[in-house]
Design a protein around this nucleic acid. Sequence first.
DNA 1: TACCAGGTGGAGT
DNA 2: ACTCCACATGGT
Length: 335
Amino acid sequence: MPAPSASNPWSSWHPVTGDWHPSPATLAETLDGGQSFRWVRQAHQAARPSLGEAGLPSGWADIWTGTWAGCVAQLRLDRNRLEWRAPTSLQAAVATGLPRYLALDIDWPALTDALPWRTDAHLAQCVAAFPGLRLLRQPFGETLLGFLCSATKQIVQIKQMCALLAERHGSALSDCRSGFMPRSDGAESRDKPALPLINRLPTWAQLATIPEKDLRSCLLGFRAKYIHATAEYIARRPGWLEETEHLPYAAAKARLLELPGVGEKVADCVLLFGAGKLEAFPVDTWILKSLERRYGLTGWKPAQIAHFGRTHFGPLAGLAQQFLFSWERGYGREV
DNA sequence: TACCAGGTGGAGT
DNA sequence: ACTCCACATGGT
């Protein structure tokens, strides 16, 4: 393993502790399946080219680069071993922060086994399709920002909004440069495929200082006014966001619903992906489709679907929801 | 070209 | 309370 140097600011690779051995598809779905909008895949980096056998592309693996709070990390699968590395300047922070972000302390196999898949053939199919899928525990405020961007947008576009917000309004995390271009909108990509600095998302305090028109120019559209108004709401109430994160589910949700641009669905996403509240059951268009088509709930409204989900799937409904969501997006289109 | 995208808030019944 | 619709913009 080459030592870190000025030209290679990354640390060496470390095993991710815990018993998570996701397939490439499950890793992709967990990092990039709509929970977080801050992971980028670099396809087919050579992990261990020498291990390729019998013409199979083993030894080739994706590298995922992700950013949250003060952390930048890369993940890769070396065969079925999950490994991480970080910019050397952030290695200690990532070593501390990654286990929480990946929720390594949670016994996901046990929770998944506790879902009612034995009596629900469709859920069993979804779980089988994404073995090892888990929920992230992202920073609360960043999760709120991501899902305030999400209304009637595709995941690729939400990622683009977040990338622009970080690039233009977020603080630089380190001098480390990433090996990818999130998106070139024209001029710069031509002569200089220069690699952009990695910035974190703007904090809510920073967002409160940004004029709405500057938010709009980050492709936010009508969501800009929600983000602006929410930033002002939070800025007027020191400690409000941190308190909300640590309230029980129902109380935390009631408070999130006070925010402009936050409705039932966004509140549940923030609590599920940013606060570990597994009883949250976000109902988006895919979950609507899933329960209509796989459970025969034709014509049910979102509130009714949400009630069905919570009662049918139980206290871990949010985990079940993620399996249904992933399956519906990945396999449900023609069926 | 249409229709869809991890919706929400406000106006009109 | 429920229904309908504007809101921006890129993907498929």
